[in-house]
Amino acid sequence: MNLCKNLLIGLTLSLLSLGTFAGDSSSGCGLGWAVFKDTSLVSSALRATTNAFFLNTIAMTSGTSGCAKHSIVKNDKKSLHFMDANKHQLMTEMALGNGEYVSALSQLMGCEEVAFTQNMRENFQNVFVREDMPARELVNRVQMQIISNKELAASCGLI
């Protein structure tokens, strides 16, 4: 399979590797869809671009309306997006007890890195309870671990 792929790419296509957008893989939400409603190629391109642009920048800064502006809630969207994109790396690093992904998540959740990383390792089986888990559930479980540990919660500003 790899061979066929490599041959194909090697001989024709990736010789012409354009660095393409990976299609419009957005979930259909976000400002991109609201701004460009029709489905032409160009608008699709713009939608992919605006989603990339806004879901991850402006939308992330807009806070969560109706929720208390607690640090962990304010950062929930970012944590969720990060978890969704990096579940696999996070699972590995949480088990190993170090790494830049778990460090980034602790930062997004406003937690002290060492305490967060140690807690996640100790409670690995309570967070990653199954092989395939949606990001929302994982974030909830991480938050539960934080809340259930007073010292960690304090370091995350959750008291």
Partner: peptide, 11 residues
């Protein structure tokens, strides 16, 4: 067509 985009670096 070529476009610029901006996204989190982890992506």
């Amino acid at each position: 067509r070529g476009y610029f985009d901006l996204a989190p670096y982890y992506l």
